[in-house]
Amino acid sequence: MPSCDHCGSHVSERFARVFADETGQVFACPNCSANAGIAEVARQRARA
């Protein structure tokens, strides 16, 4: 089951397909970031 690597919350398989990086890590989810900025927050956290 996929989960957010930042906060540990469960995310759906569909969410992970869209927002995970090429290794399958999900760096942001609706529980720990604003819905409108998930992709940007994920990019920022992946760089860190």
Rank of each mutant, 00 (worst) to 15 (best):
A20L: 07
C7L: 04
E40D: 13
G37M: 13
A36E: 15
S3R: 12
T23K: 15
P2S: 03
G24H: 09
A16T: 04
C7W: 05
V11Q: 01
A48R: 14
C32N: 00
A20F: 05
A34V: 10
P30C: 06
S3W: 07
E40M: 10
S9N: 11
A42Y: 00
A36I: 11
D21C: 07
F19Y: 14
F15E: 03
F15C: 04
D21F: 05
Q44R: 14
A16W: 03
C29Y: 02
A16F: 03
N35R: 13
S3I: 08
D5N: 12
R17I: 03
V18P: 02
V26C: 05
D21V: 06
C32Y: 02
A42L: 06
R43Q: 15
A42T: 03
Q25R: 15
V11I: 10
G37Q: 12
R17A: 10
C7Q: 04
R43N: 13
Q25L: 14
F15H: 03
P30M: 07
S9R: 09
G24D: 09
R47D: 09
R17M: 06
F15D: 02
A39E: 13
N35E: 14
F27A: 01
D21Y: 07
F27M: 00
A34S: 15
V41R: 04
G8H: 05
R14I: 05
R17K: 12
Q44Y: 12
A28D: 01
C4W: 00
I38W: 04
E40A: 14
A28Y: 00
G37V: 08
P2G: 01
E22L: 08
A48S: 11
A28K: 01
H10F: 13
F27I: 01
C29P: 00
C4G: 00
V11F: 03
V26Y: 01
M1E: 06
P30V: 06
V18K: 12
H6N: 09
N35D: 14
E13I: 07
S9V: 08
E13F: 08
V11C: 05
R43A: 15
V26G: 02
A46P: 00
N35I: 11
F15Q: 04
A39K: 12
A20T: 05
A46K: 13
D21W: 06
T23H: 14
